[in-house]
């Protein structure tokens, strides 16, 4: 890592290649080569070549079932690919247990939030800390050996809880938190590990909109602290606002890569994501609102259901036609 670089304003190009699926990065932190995982006959993940840039925020997007979470599981050791090699910061991760991956500095959160319900918020946070000698059985009996480190951990946790607006909940059981607060706790807990790469699986799902902005800032600030971020998200505002780089998956493959503004206008992406709505700019709030308005008129709309993304082509074209006729269409 070069000294004296402010990663917040670092504008050196991420890739010297032409941006596209599998392009080489200037400074990758994760490299995956020919990683495949199939369930039964379905190829859940079939990634030919992918590099995640260091000290950048990378968004992983794609329709439901594209294999984003499976790729997360494969990279972090929670699942084993059928073939391929992948490494983190020069360490090959083939066959490495998930806890060792985490110790290398690659920490993830889960799409279905996992908090320890019957532990307090503070205990959840402390659990994330590293180098606590009291976690070994031999030293656990003697508080003198771990009490000092415990104080440091508590101080570290208090700072993070304050950032994530959970400081009033310190002594509450984690099970008493709302879904959004649990997301925040999980993210804060992952940061207790002081990772080099944070992998967030849908960090915004269920988080109160008022908190979204501050959460976005937190994620951006991770970069300033020298961390790299990889996140899965369906919220295109967020992707546009925080991501430096976007990787698009569909049906297990990487179909596009590039900077957010370029990728979101990429026809391959729009097609993968929305099937038919070619004229929608995904990163533009107006575009999404327009789409939502259209879909709310549509009784067969599948947005928000499991079938989201599998829109009926003819029905949409019809709708667009009527919208144009009535003059409500606001074409840009």
């Amino acid at each position: 890592m070069a000294e004296g670089i402010d990663y917040m304003t670092d504008s050196r190009p991420i890739t010297e290649d032409t941006p596209g699926p599998g392009c080489r990065k200037r400074d990758p932190i994760v490299t995956a080569k020919k990683v495949t995982r199939s369930f039964g006959g379905i190829n859940a993940v079939d990634v030919d070549y992918l590099e995640i840039p260091r000290n950048k925020i990378t968004a992983l997007i794609g329709p439901n079932g594209a294999g984003k979470t499976t790729l997360f599981n494969l990279l972090t050791g929670f699942d084993t690919p059928q073939s391929g090699e992948w490494n983190f910061d020069g360490h090959s991760l083939a066959g490495v247990a998930p806890y060792k991956v985490a110790r290398l500095g690659m920490v993830r959160t889960f799409q279905l939030t996992k908090v320890m319900g019957k532990l307090t918020v503070m205990e959840n946070m402390r659990l994330g800390a590293t180098d606590q000698p009291g976690e070994s059985l031999a030293r656990a009996l003697f508080k003198g050996l771990w009490g000092g480190r415990e104080k440091e951990i508590t101080a570290q946790a208090e700072v993070l809880l304050q950032k994530f607006k959970l400081d009033t909940k310190t002594d509450d059981y984690a099970a008493s938190l709302s879904g959004g607060q649990r997301k925040l706790l999980e993210m804060a807990r992952a940061l207790m590990v002081k990772p080099r790469l944070v992998m967030l699986d849908e960090p915004m799902a269920g988080v109160n909109p008022a908190l979204t902005q501050s959460l976005l800032d937190h994620i951006k600030n991770l970069k300033a602290e020298g961390m790299s971020v990889l996140f899965v998200e369906h919220d295109m505002h967020m992707v546009r606002h925080v991501a430096d780089w976007v990787v698009v998956m569909a049906e297990g493959r990487v179909v596009a890569e590039g900077t957010p503004d370029v990728v979101m206008k990429d026809p391959a992406v729009i097609d993968a994501y929305l099937g038919a709505h070619h004229d929608v700019d995904l990163g533009d709030s107006h575009g999404v609102e327009k789409l939502e308005a259209e879909l709310s008129q549509d009784e067969e709309s599948v947005v928000g259901t499991e079938d989201a993304g599998l829109l009926d082509h003819t029905r949409i074209t019809e709708l667009e036609g009527t919208a144009r006729d009535t003059g409500t269409e606001d074409r840009r």
Binding site: T76, P98, Y99, A102, V107, K118, L127, K143
Partner: peptide, 27 residues
């Protein structure tokens, strides 16, 4: 003594959700 220690905390974490504990780097 064991259960008030960080060792005991990891155990209780495992009781609640062992994958979460794994993701935090504990064996």
């Amino acid at each position: 003594l064991l259960m008030r220690s960080p060792w005991g905390r990891v155990l209780k974490g495992i009781r609640e959700d062992e994958n979460a504990v794994r993701s935090l780097g504990k064996n």
